[in-house]
């Protein structure tokens, strides 16, 4: 009998304990899993956010954990399977949507709960400075004549998908040259070894300002600051509305709502910090904040879009 009492008491304590735990959150450091090597865009922006977060967390820190491999799959799977207690977050990007669809990654995008988004990077078409294509009209006219060689990061990435979307929208075909890293893409562009590139705006901007490449069209709703003369994809007749790389935070499904809200508010504070904004801007990443709900919508739309393109281009899930 005494034994039973103990069990009941312990169970009651556990039930009462859980919400108390969420109220205490965070009581220790939070891991932010970056599913790529140190040094890339996700890693750099995550580190900037973690550094700024110190201002708001009274001694608790966001720790970057690099778990690379499988083009992000290893780290994404690790985060999807982590304990949903708010102490493991994933630095999430478009590849978390495409990995299960194209690479047969052992998780679903619905295994994650969106926390918030901190940057949206519209896709651009860029060409080498020495290219004969001065405008997007020149470029597309040539694309109708022959298959242009387009460099982009790997097959099935959102950049490759952007190219497929243009193929569908503007009735052209491209030859894709893929890379294992941005260095290879830049080399191919600056050396004039390809006709053009599909890049996120943040990266393309740096290369365009530094010289060597030219941005022809950007996949945002409006023209980008500093590049007012560059038309949007929509206006250029590519038949593709906005197309973007997003970067944000997500937690495993089942994380308490209070915790998600806490992290979402934390990200909001970080993105409002002038020092953080200045660093992000300097590095070329446009700071945009979306809360948990808004980000969840962005992810869902990406999922629908990716499935549609796969369907229309006849790409199937490979095991």
């Amino acid at each position: 009998m005494k034994m039973l009492k103990c069990v009941v008491l312990a169970a009651a304590a556990a039930v009462v304990g859980a919400p108390v735990h969420a109220a205490d959150y965070p009581s220790r450091n939070i891991d932010l899993v970056v599913p790529f090597n140190p040094g890339g865009a996700v890693d750099t922006t995550s580190r900037m956010a973690a550094e700024t977060a110190k201002k708001f967390l009274n001694g608790i820190e966001i720790k970057i954990i690099n778990k690379d491999g499988g083009g992000g799959v290893v780290g994404q799977t690790f985060a999807a399977r982590a304990k949903p207690d708010g102490y493991t977050m994933l630095a999430i990007t478009n590849s978390a949507v495409s990995s299960p669809l194209l690479k047969g990654a052992p998780f679903k995008i619905t295994d994650f709960t969106a926390v918030g988004l901190y940057t949206i990077d519209p896709e651009v078409i860029a060409v080498p400075d020495t290219s004969p294509f001065k405008t997007i009209t020149d470029f597309m006219a040539a694309a109708k004549q022959r298959k242009l060689n387009i460099v982009s990061s790997g097959a099935g990435t959102s950049h490759h998908m952007a190219g497929l979307a243009i193929e569908l929208g503007a009735k052209v075909e491209f030859t894709y040259v893929f890379s294992r890293g941005f260095g290879e893409e830049l080399q191919a562009m600056l050396g004039g070894h390809v006709d053009g590139a599909l890049w996120p705006f943040g990266i393309a901007k740096q290369q365009a300002v530094g010289g060597g490449t030219r941005i022809l069209a950007v996949a945002s709703n409006e023209s980008m600051p500093g590049f007012e003369s560059v038309p949007t994809w929509e206006k250029s007749g590519l038949g593709v509305p906005a197309w973007q790389t997003f970067r944000g935070w997500a937690v495993p499904k089942g994380t308490p709502q209070e915790v998600v809200t806490f992290l979402s508010d934390l990200l909001k504070k970080i993105t409002a910090e002038p020092d953080y904004r200045a660093k992000m801007d300097k590095a070329g990443f446009p700071v945009v904040y979306r809360n948990a709900e808004g980000f969840a919508k962005t992810i869902a739309e990406e999922d629908v879009l990716t499935r549609r393109i796969m369907n229309e281009k006849g790409l199937t899930l490979k095991k």
Binding site: P38, G39, D43, T44, L186, Q206, G210, K282
Partner: peptide, 26 residues
């Protein structure tokens, strides 16, 4: 040019980016 030739020089880019600098002509 800002082109990393190997994984080590890619980390140089990261270190520069953290300091708000861009390798290359800039």
């Amino acid at each position: 040019l800002g082109i990393p030739g190997n994984s080590v020089s890619a980390l140089f880019i990261a270190a520069l980016a953290i300091q708000g600098m861009v390798p290359g002509p800039l």
